[in-house]
Amino acid sequence: MTWDADEIMTVTAARSLAGRTSCFVGIGLPSTAANLARRTSNPDLALIYESGAIGAKPTVLPLSIGDGELGETADAVVSVPEIFNYWLQPGRVDVGFLGAAQVDRLGNINTTVIGDYAAPAVRLPGAGGAPEIAASCRETIVIVRHRPRILVDRLAFVTSLGFGDGPGHRAALGLRGRGPIRLITDLGVLEPDPETCELTLASIHPGVTVDEVRAATGWPLAVRADLAVTAPPTPAELTALRSLTRGGSVA
């Protein structure tokens, strides 16, 4: 089966959730990947949505973080204050899975504005649940399409913290979670360098060249010595993904 760039991105992201118990899910690309994980790499994964749905098992892909399907299929539905205070804040969720308008080389996220805050060129939706998801989940995985205007050197506005200014910054701020362990794009996978925290190219998707990835990255991208090529999506993964995104019932 052939596949497109978005499909290998989503499949790769779903594989990243293997072995995890719980995932706090952002809407959009993260939600598609997390729901695919439940149908492929991790059927028992507890999906948590900020609307208060814990252990949601939607049979169709939700369009919003509060679709009826999420509440009706959940193990429990709690209030919004409870989902943030009791479930997210103490650090009991394994993975926070986030999208972003922009990500910088240290994994910080902007979803607030492009340009000056007081007179923005583009006003984005804002923070939502992301600042505390990025702070309090044990680890964070970020998924974006790989473009120079999305993967930028520095952010004008940090909405959600990755590694901040670099090594030690999260710990100095008292944050409990490890921060972003992986940035998955439609071209490859970036992971933080253990010394510098800078996102470096760990894997490229089949058919993509390192030069293409560099050209689509807003900073001089370092490439890991052990650069891998992402395993192509299997027919089972693609079938599950397509039934999900085409709105078919995949229960």
Partner: peptide, 30 residues
Amino acid sequence: HSHAGMANRYVAGASGLPFAVLRGYVGTDI
């Protein structure tokens, strides 16, 4: 605000308290 911040602001308001406490916003520009 963030969602966690807004939710806690309502909780404080409902509880008759002047503010709420949370782990939030740390390191962000918000």
